[in-house]
Amino acid sequence: MAYSEKVIDHYENPRNVGKLDAEDPDVGTGMVGAPACGDVMRLQIKVNEQGIIEDAKFKTYGCGSAIASSSLATEWMKGKTLDEAETIKNTQLAEELALPPVKIHCSVLAEDAIKAAVRDYKQKKGLV
């Protein structure tokens, strides 16, 4: 299957690969997986005092579409508030990356990872 240019770009030059300290109270970690593909995705955010996501990192084991979806998700999350980040939809990621229908679930995984990271942060801060 042919990947779109944008997927290949994110796959070859992934943005924000790495790890933040999961024990840091200002860091939220989302760990999600897609069992049938075996994809595992870790997405982390660091939130500053103004409630802005000042850093985001990811590590994904999976196909090119899953890597591109999480790479793009971290790009989009940086500089946003938590509420804004939570409005990022898988359909937007899929559209930006021109994912084919069989790869839509990769963008769903990335959206679920965003939500899991935000929820983890909010739980740490007693916001939920």
Binding site: V32, G33, P35, R42, V108, D112
Partner: peptide
């Protein structure tokens, strides 16, 4: 195809 959130297992994976 679903998204699972099974943190300890996924960290190990």
């Amino acid at each position: 195809e679903v998204t699972v959130q099974d943190p300890d297992f996924l960290i190990q994976q």
